[in-house]
């Protein structure tokens, strides 16, 4: 469903992604891990069209989406969340979802919004101001809600569980699993907590200094000596 071929992303002199290739199959839930600054968020930004890569191709559902502007990526079915929640200011929670649905999915469907709000536990806050009246967990839920409202086929979650307490995190992870099954999603999840990754993702890839250094089951990947070294701060030769 998603095929990245030799994606390079440079910011001035810094190469955040280094000729990176990756493919994600339909229906797969992929964990994306790696130390801070490895390039994980940059990868999401390139896939969702926030940045145009310096090189490489991005195919989604068989189509080359590399030239599509950001707003069109949403319309072809790429949904994502931001590491730092980005509510639409001045709007309520429900209005946030309405905008996402109207423009991302193409038409308004109040019943579908009700379902999303229910699944994410936001129904009671739907008329609250999105930018000022949500607790952290609710802000994260709204991030997921907006991405779901565009009716994505691929959902990319950037540390959506980060900063949550353990118990909340577990509940949220279960919600994500429910959402995935309900909407038949392909998912890529950036997450630091190994237990959470193990619970959600049958396959994990590890990014370090903009390069993939491991790809496999959580058990195999987290026991890989190179992966362990990357977390203890070694630079590649």
């Amino acid at each position: 469903m998603l095929e990245l071929d030799a994606i390079t992303m440079r910011f001035g002199g810094l190469t955040a992604l280094h000729a990176m290739s990756l493919s994600v199959a339909e229906g797969e839930t992929l964990g994306l891990v790696g130390p801070n600054g490895a390039g994980k968020t940059t990868l999401f930004n390139v896939i969702s069209g926030v940045y145009a890569p310096s090189g490489g191709t991005i195919r989604f559902g068989g189509q080359d989406v590399g030239a599509l502007p950001q707003w069109k990526r949403a319309r072809v079915g790429i949904g994502r969340t931001f590491q730092i929640p980005q509510p639409m200011r001045e709007l309520t929670v429900r209005e946030n979802l309405r905008v996402a649905q109207r423009f991302g999915a193409g038409k308004e469907d109040p019943a579908a919004l009700d379902e999303i709000l229910d699944l994410l536990g936001l129904a009671h806050k739907q008329h609250a101001d999105a930018a000022t009246s949500l607790a952290l967990t609710e802000q994260k839920a709204l991030e997921v809600g907006k991405a779901l409202a565009v009716r994505p086929r691929l959902l990319m979650l950037d540390e959506v569980l980060g900063g949550l307490e353990m118990a909340t995190k577990r509940t949220f992870a279960r919600t994500l699993e429910t959402v995935r099954a309900r909407f038949g999603l392909t998912m890529v999840i950036i997450e630091h907590d190994i237990e959470t990754i193990k619970a959600l993702c049958p396959r994990v890839v590890v990014l370090n200094f903009g390069q993939l250094i491991a790809d496999g089951t959580p058990e195999a990947v987290f026991n890989d000596p190179q992966v362990i070294r990357s977390y203890t701060g070694d630079t590649p030769a």
Partner: peptide
């Protein structure tokens, strides 16, 4: 309208609106 909502949100949250498909 939803256009109005998107437009209102665009000033402060352009990234948030684009990523959900708003052609700002």
């Amino acid at each position: 309208s939803t256009y109005g909502l998107a437009l209102r949100a665009m000033h402060d949250s352009e990234l948030a609106t684009r990523v959900v498909g708003v052609p700002s």
